[in-house]
Nucleic acid binder design. Structure first.
Length: 737
DNA sequence: CTAGGGTTAG
């Protein structure tokens, strides 16, 4: 046996480090090869600097450039500056080789201005020095400056760009989305034959992708006589980033088939494509592949896999990977998992994981909060909301625009629009998304006029509205019955801002016209749509037909919806209700039968109320609550009280049974149960907050108004579409929803 | 001793 592991064995011989023979220059070279900056500094320290010392022992230019390279690699600015001082003391700081290395060091330490200063002091600048500056600007996000340097090196010094110049400046062209510049570089490369080089062509291809010129990129890719992994990765990622995930995956498969080396970048690009398409099976294949080639220890790849499985709605698989990461987890891993839970409706899991992150002392960043805050918003517990807000402040992240916007949205969703407005007013920086969140907040709470006013104020600030802004504004107009304003904004969207309305905008417009009773106009609006109307558009029409009892147009709309094959039973239910309203019982039966045949089910309605730390869920007629008896008793009393102030049960949507049974059924709606329970459990005067999974029904809406009157309570009800604030016998929606 | 500058990914 050559090596023995027994404890009694003699220690292995130490590596040959003849300390006496220590030539500092050799030691520094060795340290540099190991990228060992401290070792290199020790070696440097043992070099004599006095001119009386033997010349061979004194540091030479090479010594300093080696140190600078190490500083650059580690972004160690302090040491880099010390080396700069040493060079300056010897009058070497402007020497071509040293200055170039210095410029490079500063650029990698994110100090492009210092790099420039060194460059400007050079008496003569060669191509390499120019290249260092181009690369320095490019990697620090100074795209225009990088491109300008390429022009100046030719004009001022007559230096012809070489391959390094091109691969340095191309990322700048790419990040500046400067397609024209990309084309110029490409043309230049063709002219001087630099396109033969794989790295040049790859950089061109990548820049084309980033500028959205995916066909041009593909043409370069297909032309390239020699490709490497980077070329393939850039092309695959180009497709993934440009929304063509299908082509990205196809190319990825070809790459594997042709035996090109798959790297971590390949995997990341392929996973991105799988996630975008929600292709679980493909994601699993990529997963298997990366296990085969041993990329499992790459945390970035595992993080991407967590994200991808989450996008495929498999948080279970994501969580498994997350747990397997053990102590290799980074903050990005936590963020990915929290976001995964948050976006898949697992709000409690998201918040729990966030708490665990605190317990394990992982510092959060703005991404963490932007992931967890929507989960808190979904849970809508004001206490938790206040806590996560305080947490954001403690970690100095509350003024991050994205965090702030998430907080505004969260407070709106917790029914606290005023607090949301306070945050909005205190914001030091506001993006479009910030305005959108606030406008949406007002709109969803029925403050349509305020939403519109805020939108007008936004236009005055010079911030350009986007598609989402208009969606919120149109929805606000719809909820507040601002028909003329809505029509004008819809036109303005395209004419003044060049924004193309999407399916949701059309749906909202139909909703706006339909709610206002302009059914014929809504129908014509659909007919005039330049895109094929989707289920959501006809769904809005159907809802309006229910509201205004128009059987004919309801049938037409439903017909189109059924042709489009809806996955939920809501539209059948809606149509059946419309027939029932018109006493067309045969038709009701027919719709019910088709619904059953298609295996579609009515979504059971539920309402929840949160008290202390418990969530109480009520279904229509449910009796399984611990305090069910009390609840029904309180409800019965409540119904008597509101009858005294004019409550008449709205039994329109119920049939087949006697009137008193109808009233009975209405009285056990989940909303009413939740409210009754809230009244029992909370002190007089407390606001009651309810969340309902469907639209609040007509009768419950009516009843709740009167409940707010007789009990003197404010009741905030969040349904699938919007918020209703009930107070003093009125609702913020003005009975218009 | 011929040094100093460079492509994908998050």
């Amino acid at each position: 046996m050559l090596l023995c592991c027994r404890a009694t064995a003699s220690p292995p011989p130490s590596p040959p480090t003849p300390s006496h023979a220590a030539d500092p220059h050799a030691r520094l070279r060795a340290a540099a090869a190991r990228s060992d900056l401290p070792g290199a500094l020790t070696a440097f320290a043992s070099m004599p600097s006095s001119p009386s010392a033997p010349a061979a022992a004194r540091p030479v230019l090479r010594t300093f450039t080696a140190l600078l390279k190490l500083c650059a690699a580690r972004a160690d600015l302090a040491t880099g500056r010390a080396v700069h001082a040493q060079l300056a003391a010897r009058g070497l700081a402007s020497e071509s080789l040293a200055a170039t290395a210095l410029a490079n060091m500063y650029a990698k330490c994110r100090r492009p201005a210092d790099a420039r200063r060194v460059f400007d002091r050079m008496p003569a600048r060669d191509r390499v020095a120019w290249n260092a500056l181009v690369a320095g600007y490019a990697r620090n996000g100074l795209h225009e400056a990088a491109m300008e340097m390429v022009v100046r090196m030719q004009e001022e010094d007559g230096e012809r760009p070489d391959s390094v110049t091109l691969v340095s400046v191309l990322p700048a062209c790419a990040n500046a989305r400067a397609l024209g510049a990309c084309r110029q570089v490409h043309a230049f490369a063709l002219r001087v034959g630099l396109d033969e080089l794989v790295n040049v062509s790859t950089a061109i291809l990548d820049a084309y992708c980033k500028c959205g010129a995916i066909e041009a990129a593909r043409a370069v890719f297909d032309w390239m006589p020699v490709k490497n992994s980077v070329s393939w990765n850039a092309m695959i990622d180009g497709y993934a980033q440009n929304g063509n995930a299908t082509e990205a995956l196809a190319l990825f498969k070809r790459m594997v088939k042709e035996g090109v080396d798959v790297t971590d970048a390949t995997i990341l690009a392929a996973l991105q494509a799988c996630g975008e398409l929600g292709y679980l099976d493909e994601a699993r294949h990529v997963h298997e592949l990366l296990l085969r080639i041993g990329l499992k220890s790459n945390v970035s790849v595992m993080n991407a896999l967590i994200t991808t499985y989450s996008k495929c709605k498999r948080t279970d698989l994501a969580a498994e990977l997350f747990n397997d990461l053990g102590n290799k987890k980074t903050r990005i891993s936590w963020n990915a998992m929290i976001l995964g839970f948050s976006q898949n409706g697992c709000s409690e899991d998201a918040v729990r994981l966030f708490s665990r992150m605190q317990l394990e002392n992982v510092k959060p960043d703005s991404f963490t909060l932007v992931s967890v805050i929507p989960a808190v918003a979904e849970i809508s517990d004001p206490m938790q909301a206040r806590w996560v807000h305080g947490y954001s402040i403690r970690h100095h992240l509350d003024q991050d625009v994205y965090v702030l916007t998430a907080l505004i949205d969260m407070y709106s969703k917790c029914g606290r629009v005023t607090i949301a407005r306070g945050l909005f007013d205190s914001a030091r920086v506001r993006h479009v998304i910030t305005w959108n969140a606030m406008i949406h907040g007002y709109g969803s709470h029925g403050f349509g006029k305020v939403a519109v006013e805020l939108f007008e104020e936004m236009k005055g600030t010079g911030i350009l509205p986007n598609e989402t802004t208009f969606l919120s504004v149109l929805a606000a107009c719809s909820h507040a019955g601002l028909v003329d304003e809505g029509r004008r904004y819809f036109v303005s969207m395209k004419e003044d801002y060049g924004l193309e309305p999407g399916m949701e905008h059309y749906g909202t417009m139909v909703d706006l016209l339909g709610r206002a009773g302009k059914l014929d106009e809504a129908w014509l609006f659909i007919k005039d749509m330049p895109i094929q109307p989707g289920i959501s558009v006809y769904g809005a029409m159907l809802g309006a037909c229910k509201l205004h009892k128009n059987v004919e147009l309801a049938e037409e709309s439903a017909q189109r919806i059924f042709e489009l094959g809806p996955e939920e039973g809501v539209y059948h239910v809606l149509l059946a209700n419309i027939y029932a309203n018109a006493s067309k019982w045969k038709d009701v039966a027919r719709v019910r039968t088709t619904m059953e045949k298609k295996g579609l089910q009515k979504t059971p309605g539920w309402s929840i109320i949160q008290l202390k730390n418990e969530v109480h869920t009520f279904y229509s007629g449910s009796t399984n609550h611990q305090q069910a008896k009390e609840i029904y008793a309180r409800l019965a009393k409540l119904i008597e009280e509101i009858k005294d102030v004019g409550y008449v049960p709205d039994t329109d949507s119920i049939h087949d049974v006697e009137d008193d049974v109808k009233a009975q059924l209405l009285n056990t709606h989940s909303e009413k149960l939740a409210i009754a329970y809230g009244l029992i459990r909370t002190a007089p005067g407390t606001t009651i907050q309810i969340k309902k999974n469907l639209r609040v029904c007509n009768d419950c809406h009516n009843a709740t108004k009167l409940i707010s009157l007789v009990t003197g309570r404010e009741i905030i009800m969040r349904d699938i579409q919007r918020f209703h604030h009930f107070k003093d016998g009125k609702c913020s929606c003005g009975d218009y929803w």
